[in-house]
Computed example of a mutant assay.
Amino acid sequence: MSAEGTTLPKFVEEAAITAHERLIAGVYRMTLTSPAVAAHALPGQFVDVSVPHGTSILRRPLGIAEVSRTEGWIRLIYRTVGRGTQALAAARPGAYVSVLGPLGRGFHTDLGHPLLVGGGMGLTPLLFFAAESARTASVLMGGRTKEELFWERIYAPYVRGLFMTTDDGSHGVKGFVTTVLPDLLAGGDYDGVAVCGPPAMMRRVAAIAASHGVSCEVSLERHMACGLGACLSCAVDTKHGRRKVCKDGPVFPAGEVYDDAS
C-alpha cells in the first residue's frame, strides 16, 4: 500500500496526550488519541502538531512512528531542536494538542523483503513502515554511539533482520550504514530500499542501491511552514522540476532527486 497517486483525506483533531516519555536526552516519544489520522495514515506520512501554550503560531511537522487503527492512537518520536519542540516536550499526559494530518505521500510498501536504512531521527518514519510490514522488513540503523541506537529494542518486534553500525564501534559494526550496505545487498534477497536520515547518507545509500539494481525511495526533510503545499518553503529541485516536499513527498524515488541513483 502506498500514498502515491491518490487523493488522501486530511483531518484536524484535538488530540489528548496519553503518554509522553524521554527516550534519551533530547528525544521524546508521544502518544496521541487521533482516531481519524490513525485510520488513514500510511508509512512515510507526517502530521503537523500545534505547539502548546502559544509558544509559536506555526505547527511542527513530525513523522508518524506508529499507529493503532483499532485503538485510535498515533505515536510520534521527535528530537527537541528549538523553542517549539522544547515546549512540546514539556507537555504532560492529559494535555491536548491540535493535529493536522496525515500529510504527504509515503513509501511503496508492497515489497516482499524491504531493507529500511536509517540514521538518527530518520528512523522515525521507517518504524511505521516496519510495523506495517508483518515482519517482512529488515532494518539497517546507524548512530554515533550505542546510546543513539535505543531504536534497537523498539524495532525488534517488527522486523525480520536487524543490523547496526556505530561511528565509535560501541555497538554493532564500527563505521556507517554505507560500510555494510553493499554486502547486505549483495548477499540478501531485498527487493527495495527505503531510506531516511542525513542528506549525505541518503544520497550514498541511493547510489549503492542503484549499483546493485535495487529500487530505492528516500524521505526528504525540509523546513516546512504550512505542510499543505501553499507556502513553497519546502520546494526542492527534481528531475521533474520543482516539487514540494510536504505535498509531493516527503518520499520520492531516489532517481528523481539524485543523478547517481538512476
Rank of each mutant, 00 (worst) to 15 (best):
V180K: 10
A261T: 06
L123S: 06
V218E: 00
E14Y: 06
G120N: 03
V47F: 04
D248H: 01
R105H: 11
L76Q: 09
S50W: 09
V67F: 06
G120E: 03
S233T: 14
S98D: 11
V218C: 11
H171W: 10
T31V: 15
L232C: 09
E66P: 01
V49C: 12
S2C: 03
S34E: 04
K10S: 12
L32Y: 03
G255Q: 02
S98I: 04
T178N: 03
F176R: 14
R160N: 13
R83F: 05
G104I: 02
L126A: 08
A261L: 09
D167R: 15
T33R: 15
S262G: 11
T80I: 14
V37T: 15
A89V: 09
G26A: 09
G63H: 08
V257Y: 01
G44V: 03
S170C: 10
L181D: 01
R83N: 13
R242N: 04
G229R: 02
E71S: 12
G44H: 00
M202W: 05
D248G: 04
A91G: 10
L111E: 09
T80S: 14
H40M: 05
A134W: 05
L184T: 07
I74Y: 00
V180C: 07
R222C: 08
R160F: 04
E152D: 09
F150T: 01
I77Y: 10
G213V: 11
G54D: 01
